[in-house]
Design a protein around this nucleic acid. Structure first.
Lengths: 338, 338
DNA sequence: TTGTAGGCGTTATCAG
DNA sequence: CTGATAACGCCTACAA
């Protein structure tokens, strides 16, 4: 069934049907109704491919997700959901594409096959070949995260440097002198993962500024690793009385580790960090943390992308989010030195 | 840049270029190379919309995900990842579509706008309008889960009835006489969610058969609910010595609840269930459970769908999975009655 | 207010 | 082995 079928059945020309549906030129009320009736009856919808071919746009957004989605954190998941919903609200579809590993073909199809009008790229590295590729292909895109030279690209990111520094400040204010940073997995950070690197930077700077002794720890994104890290850390350096964490997936393990080490929170240990609200609230006691607004980021990314597709030459929009730290119950004053 | 550009630069006709790339008719080695060189140099790729229009297929699969993806369980997430990867391997793209709530337009675009060649629908209800819609639209699809009349549709599902019954058998064999079922959230089960209903059915039947006293408990999909449920249950019915769980998201909470109630596992309480392997292994002690093979299900779903698109009239394939229960360390003999 | 006709980029049929 | 040409279904400038 095509537009011709509708035209025939309503006794008008194909263009009249097209105009009646798009509203791009006026159609007499009578014929419009007649056409609409036929459309409803047959459940007609314009063929997306034909429309895309003619209009030169697909009404589809590409979403490039990290390779091992099995390891997707809750934050990322919330982000994907938000993108999906925001796109749906704007009547846009979302094409999912894995990147990294050996999925280059999928990425290439996206960029070069005109399958989408624009792309959102998650988990940007400081030096990311995908960004270069998108730029040279002239495909509108929004990066989630910044490369090391983010001036001319459109992005949405969380200011981990500032956030982690604020966490250190908070702990220093409470009198903590020996503080640890629980970072993301070492290979990830080493490969130029922005949040990991910027968290480290914010931690080191703030520790120096506040004359606090800082210890950084990289930890795999799971419960077991979190428990192990904490236990080993407190065994090796029992003087550490507080921790800043940017590794939400390790939180349940951290909790167990603290229990095993006999460090009650916040009485004998303080912990503060950056996490999805869900994890922060699931922690015992509820975690004082900057809640990453993943949902808002997804919505913003879609907004930016739509804007960018409409006006590719406008200056790229950028948004650096610094969500406030929600004071819950996981931090308290340092124990008095005996 | 289009195929004409390539044709011009290689000094051949457009059809020759097309054939050289598709290999659907033989092209002299010399011209094939010349064409390939130009293609590589310009980075040409066929316009997806034009190709879809002409061929009548989009090389795209639709994936209909549950509405509140924010609440996506790990199992579902693993499934989505597997679908994405399997599709990418077959050089197919995946179009993501939220369903439920007020996202009907997205679903309708998918079915009726010819945006995809086939659809995978997650989280099928016993009575699911989406299935009816897809059938009347003649869109090839694979259901993840079965409706109450699954005979003529193509689906992949987990046999919760059998799995839960086996769990009950295992506990009964160990001497447990009072057993609980930790099911998914009440509204979900009530709305005709297959796994929830079938888990209940398997539980009731097996309990009767084994002359075990069974108590069913619906529990929200989060840690806090899990903890609350367990504490309340053991307070109200302390004679219960074992539990079957199909609610993986509640597991961390269940663990805490058991600790708070002073029930060590497996010494003073046994627990067995159905869960993603990740959660089973994160449990303390590791959970004896049937590991839902979400990845395998995703891969199978893509296989089935590709097959179904190729031969829509072949009898629909169906796969009911009954993964074995992996014996870990969370079950033991019932305590002797004092 | 409505109809006619051309073209978007491909692939496939039909000639050569 | 290769080239011209006709669709695929839609949108829209132009004509009436």
């Amino acid at each position: 069934m095509d537009i011709g079928e509708i035209a025939r059945r309503s006794g008008v020309s194909r263009s009249t049907v097209s105009y009646a549906l798009s509203g791009k030129r006026s159609v007499s009320e009578a014929t419009r109704r007649r056409i609409q009736a036929v459309v409803d009856e047959l459940g007609y919808r314009p063929n997306a491919a034909a429309r895309a071919l003619k209009e030169g746009r697909t009404r589809t957004l590409g979403l490039v997700v990290p390779p091992a989605v099995g390891r997707l954190t809750l934050m990322q998941l919330e982000f994907v959901a938000a993108v999906m919903e925001a796109a749906a609200r704007a009547d846009l579809d979302v094409l999912l594409s894995p990147s990294g590993e050996d999925h280059d073909r999928s990425f290439e199809r996206l960029v070069t096959g005109r399958r989408v009008d624009g792309v959102i790229v998650m988990e940007i590295r400081l030096d990311d070949p995908r960004v270069t590729r998108l730029q040279e292909a002239g495909m509108p895109f929004v990066a989630i995260g910044r490369t090391s030279r983010p001036q001319r690209t459109c992005w949405v990111d969380v200011d981990y440097t500032t956030l982690v520094a604020r966490c250190v400040d908070h702990l220093a204010d409470l009198g903590h002198r020996h503080v640890a940073l629980l970072n993301r997995p070492a290979p990830l950070v080493a490969s130029g993962y922005g949040p990991g690197q910027r968290a480290r930077q914010g931690f080191v700077e703030a520790a120096a500024r506040r004359q606090v002794v800082g210890t950084e720890l990289c930890c795999d994104d799971d419960m077991a690793a979190g428990e192990r890290c904490v236990v080993e850390l407190l065994h090796a350096q029992p003087e550490i009385s507080a921790m800043v964490t940017v590794n939400e997936a390790a939180l349940p393990g951290v909790q167990r580790g603290l229990e095993r080490a006999g460090r009650s929170v916040p009485g004998r240990f303080s912990i503060v960090g950056v996490a999805a609200r869900y994890w922060a609230e699931q922690f015992h006691p509820p975690l004082t943390a900057a809640d990453v607004p993943a949902g808002e980021m997804g919505t913003t990314a879609v907004e930016f992308l739509i804007q960018r597709i409409a006006e590719p030459d406008a200056p790229p929009q950028q948004r650096l989010l610094t969500p406030p730290i929600s004071l819950r119950s996981s931090t308290g004053p340092a124990e008095r030195v005996r």
